[in-house]
């Protein structure tokens, strides 16, 4: 559906994109992740034909963004980052204008406007001027204008920013429901959002793609072996010695000692599950087991790890 090949973009002497390549399949929701200035918005602007790339190719629904911009634009719904809307227009007027310009016929426009206002939860605001709306409602109007023509491809630049938690959940659900019928690219720096809504993630940093995978794979791949935290009461030197001797343990790390209680982070060899063995050992030795929990790396950790690793290289 969307193919991006070796895209670069230079602003003066600054290289915003240094060769980005990725693909999005039909009906997929792709998360676009990266720190500020990574090139997310630039990539999106190229895909929406706002400006052309310096080099490389991008195709949307089989149309080249440089050669057939009108064909691409007809198939795209775009929500830019800071949701620029005409403040002096009423919501219905604005959506009617956008719908008509995207090719909806006069006979259908009213129905479509009503439907999209309903989907985005702005029906009760219909007659208001956009300038009078709160940030959250403006965001919804922005989303509504992207959705109105039922486009094949949706490009959303940080769609949930500035919304309250309830609205965020609603908008995420809305985006999730779009999967299958629409192809969605959404950028964000909120990582849980990606794991909640996206089927695949592209992580970019400083104009380069540093990882493309499903959120689950990224987690397991980078995390490597399982890590478990134990909070144990007992002489720390004894505990360390015994743990190191136990079967299948790759590494033990001790943290925070307090009144004879210490945290131990135990890293197991790949494929070893000693969640039964260690507590048994602790009980046998007469120490107290106060807490035991798996240390799952969140996307946040992965993100930071990838970004900093990149810098190290």
């Amino acid at each position: 559906m969307i193919e991006v090949e070796n895209l670069t973009k230079t602003y003066g002497s600054f290289n915003a994109l240094k060769g980005i390549t990725f693909k999005v399949e039909k009906g997929e929701i792709l998360g676009f992740l990266g720190p500020n200035g990574a090139g997310k918005t630039t990539t999106m602007r190229i895909l929406t034909c706002f400006f052309p790339a310096t080099s490389g190719r991008a195709r949307v629904c089989g149309f080249d963004v440089f050669e057939n911009p009108l064909d691409v634009k007809k198939r795209i719904g775009y929500l830019p980052e800071n949701v620029p809307l005409y403040k002096d227009m009423e919501i219905t007027d604005y959506l009617t204008f956008v719908g008509r310009i995207k090719g909806i016929d006069t006979g259908e426009i009213k129905k479509k406007v009503n439907k999209v206002m309903d989907d985005c939860g702005i029906t009760h605001m219909a007659g208001k001027l956009i300038g009078e709306l709160s940030k959250g409602y403006r965001q919804r109007v922005g989303l509504a204008q992207a959705l109105i023509s039922d486009p094949e491809v949706l490009i959303l630049d940080e769609p949930t920013i500035g919304l309250d938690p309830k609205q965020i959940i609603e908008i995420r659900q809305l985006i999730k429901n779009l999967a299958g019928r629409h192809t969605v690219i959404l950028s964000t720096h909120i990582l849980p959002e990606v794991s909640m809504t996206c089927q695949r993630v592209v992580i970019i940093n400083e104009g380069r793609v540093i990882a493309i995978d499903t959120p689950q794979n990224l987690t397991s791949q980078i995390q490597g072996a399982a890590k478990i935290l134990f909070k144990i009461e007992g002489s720390s030197s004894d505990v360390m010695e015994e743990l190191k001797r136990a079967r299948g343990i790759k590494k033990v790390e001790m943290k925070d000692t307090n009144n004879g209680v210490s945290d131990y982070i135990v890293e197991f060899e790949k494929g070893v599950d000693e969640r039964k063995g260690i507590p048994a050992l602790i009980v046998k030795k007469g120490w107290g087991l106060l807490e035991m929990r798996p240390m799952v790396m969140s996307l946040e950790d992965i993100f930071i790890k990838l970004v900093t690793e990149e810098k190290g290289v």
């Binding site: 034909c49 009108l70 830019p80 800071n82 809307l85 005409y86 310009i101 995207k102 090719g103």
Partner: peptide, 14 residues
């Protein structure tokens, strides 16, 4: 200034 040009120019208009 308000950035609306970005949306306007990404609509299918010449």
């Amino acid at each position: 200034r308000s950035g609306t040009i970005e949306l306007l120019l990404t609509y299918p208009v010449r």
